[in-house]
Design a protein around this nucleic acid. Structure first.
Length: 261
DNA sequence: ATGGTCGAGTATCGA
């Protein structure tokens, strides 16, 4: 593997965000870009926009909701739509796995969960457990693996603006955090925390009430790398400038740079 | 004035 920049971004509609995405790709020049919440049907996916920037792109699209994609300048092989376990397919397009220049990459959009105790919350916990089994089916922990995207879970209290305001809600509950920790126990490392232990590093801010400017955010977008990849981490950045300006996503993009062997 | 914002699509749901 040569030096590699891997990025992830919940764009909250690829159609609405296409100018911003093109601008950010031109600035950050990721080798691999994982997208979530593309919210576009397969027939309308803007593949040519990526091709014109030099990227191959694969996507798992359901229509107006959800949707995930992987764009790569370094090749895309061994693509898996959704879960690999052969069980009942996920009706929602939330998971896509591919190999890019030897790195097994999964882009994930974990169900929101709505409210603790809600049927959707139980679904979220089952989905995260199934994701762990999926990773074990499509990758080996001793290989180069990156599982990244919108987990809709803030791993600990440093990752939310006000734990007292957040506790009792989704994204911070103990079972959700335990599910992410269980996934990490497979052999994945939170690359942002490998370089930063301070609080206040967020990836999402509500559109309402000027939350971004008040620094009311959460770190719910994670980049989880296997040990062999994490050992070669050079630099990681949450690009909060991309949350500014006109028509931003409510999530900031994030990228990590890895040195070659 | 008892909301506050987006994006789906065009009534209202989901985040």
């Amino acid at each position: 593997m040569t030096d590699m920049r891997i990025a992830t971004w919940n764009v909250n509609s690829l159609k609405a965000r296409l100018p911003k995405v093109e601008e950010w790709i031109d600035y950050a020049k990721p080798d691999v870009l994982c997208l979530q919440e593309t919210k576009v049907g397969a027939d309308a996916f803007p593949s040519m926009s990526f091709a014109s920037l030099g990227y191959e792109v694969v996507h798992h699209s359901e229509g107006r909701w959800n949707g995930v994609a992987i764009a790569s300048k370094v090749g895309i092989d061994d693509v898996v739509d959704g879960f690999a376990d052969g069980d009942e397919p996920d009706r929602e397009a939330r998971l896509l796995t591919a190999t890019c220049a030897g790195v097994r990459v999964a882009t994930v959009y974990v169900p929101n969960g709505r409210v603790v105790g809600h049927e959707q919350y139980d679904h979220k916990l089952r989905w995260l457990a199934r994701l762990r089994r999926h990773v074990d089916l499509v990758a080996r922990p001793d290989a180069d693996v990156m599982v990244c995207g919108d987990f809709n879970v803030a791993p600990d209290d440093r990752d939310v603006w006000d734990p007292s305001a957040c506790h009792g809600g989704t994204h911070v509950s103990e079972p959700e955090r335990a599910a992410v920790a269980d996934l990490e126990a497979w052999g994945l490392h939170d690359v942002l925390r490998a370089q930063h232990d301070e609080p206040g590093l967020y990836t999402w801010w509500d559109y309402q009430a000027g939350a971004f400017h008040k620094h009311w955010g959460m770190r719910i977008d994670l980049m989880l790398a296997s040990a062999s990849l994490a050992d070669r981490l050079e630099y990681v950045l949450i690009d909060r400038t991309a949350r500014k300006g006109t028509k931003p996503s409510d999530h900031a993009p994030q990228f990590a740079d890895f040195s070659g062997r």
